[in-house]
């Protein structure tokens, strides 16, 4: 099964998910309407929904899902730890802090995104610098990430406490739970380049990033410049995480769960895992977001859905046999 190339089948799954995601919503679109719009023969309300609402939202979901899954897979390999995810370096919380601050200050959307992106990067830079100062081991870095993530969480709580309870607090709370409800074409255009830029080094270095999971001595003895490679991998993963968070809020579990499930298909080789996990993460997020906007009369935050799906699946994976990651 591992020898099979999973990229094409998963790309097919993603295309089906994208089509379904565009069709499903409060204003349903038929497959025929989609085809007409793509061929430039559509019009009316359908066209507005397709081009201004559904397509940007579905593409944003796909990008966010791909980003979180790719970042999770990268962190897991780079830190030799199957139980880490984009949250581990405090990136999600750090980016969340900046975005919440932006909402509190009443900044425009783009500024909120930039602020979230900036604080996400600052958080990871602090984590890396601190862990290098303390000793540079992988465990120290993970613990620094947890500590700084908690600090960012405290900052978020403080801002929520100070926020206007009628106006700002609901917006902050909803955003923190993760949502693509308000995503417009401009948001997508702001986040997409950062996500693609971050994915580029991961894709180019995919064979070598896998070697990091052997441990530093072994990877070096195989010819890998471990320190530089890990920095590049972590920087790329952090960039895509921060960009995803500043567009869609904090969406947990995807970065942990998707790589684990895909590893069952592709095996642990990172060069096979990365494209498969990114495609699967994209398809997963598109479908979850479609559920989020149709399951109830009001939008359900994505973070609630991913946690509801992620926690049981993750426990099932654990029960299925810890031998997949052994520790």
């Amino acid at each position: 099964m591992r020898e099979r190339n999973w990229t094409l089948p998963l790309a097919g799954v993603l295309i089906v998910a994208l089509v379904l995601g565009i069709m499903i919503g409060p204003y349903p679109l038929s497959a025929r309407q989609i085809l007409q719009e793509l061929l430039g023969q559509g019009g009316g309300t359908g066209a507005t929904v397709f081009w201004n609402i559904r397509l940007p939202r579905v593409l944003a979901a796909a990008l966010v899902g791909a980003a979180l899954a790719a970042a999770g897979a990268t962190y897991q390999s780079a830190f030799r730890n199957p139980l880490v995810s984009p949250d581990i370096l405090g990136v999600s919380a750090g980016a969340g802090l900046g975005a919440v601050l932006g909402i509190y200050l009443g900044l425009p959307v783009l500024a909120i995104q930039l602020l979230g992106f900036g604080t996400g990067l600052v958080t990871v830079a602090l984590v890396v610098t601190l862990s290098l100062m303390i000793g540079g081991s992988v465990l120290v870095m993970v613990l620094c990430g947890i500590a700084l993530g908690a600090l960012a969480g405290a900052g978020i709580s403080l801002i929520k406490l100070m926020a206007d309870p009628d106006n700002q607090l609901p917006a902050i709370t909803f955003w923190l739970m993760g949502s693509l409800a308000g995503v417009k074409r401009g948001d997508l255009m702001a986040a997409a380049p950062a996500i693609l830029l971050g994915l580029l080094p991961l894709a180019l270095l995919r064979w070598r990033i896998g070697l990091l999971s052997l441990g530093d001595d072994e990877a070096r003895s195989l010819g890998v410049e471990v320190g530089r490679l890990r920095m590049l991998a972590v920087a790329g993963a952090t960039l895509v995480t921060a960009a995803a968070v500043s567009m869609a809020g904090v969406i947990g579990w995807v970065g942990l769960m998707v790589p684990h499930m895909i590893r069952l298909l592709t095996g642990p080789r990172f060069d096979r895992l990365l494209p498969a996990a990114a495609l699967a993460g994209a398809a997963f997020m598109v479908l979850v977001d479609a559920c989020a906007r149709t399951m109830a009369r009001q939008e359900i935050p994505l973070g609630i859905l991913t946690a509801t799906l992620g926690a049981p699946v993750f426990i099932a994976l654990l029960a299925r046999g810890a031998r997949q990651w052994r520790q």
Binding site: S213, D217, E218, G223, V224, P268, R323, W325, Q327
Partner: peptide
């Protein structure tokens, strides 16, 4: 690093692999 690896290979005593 890669030229050292081309010259000298390493057989470690034990491996602690995080993945299968």
């Amino acid at each position: 690093r890669h030229r050292i690896a081309a010259h000298l290979a390493y057989v470690p005593q034990a491996q602690d692999l995080p993945f299968a």
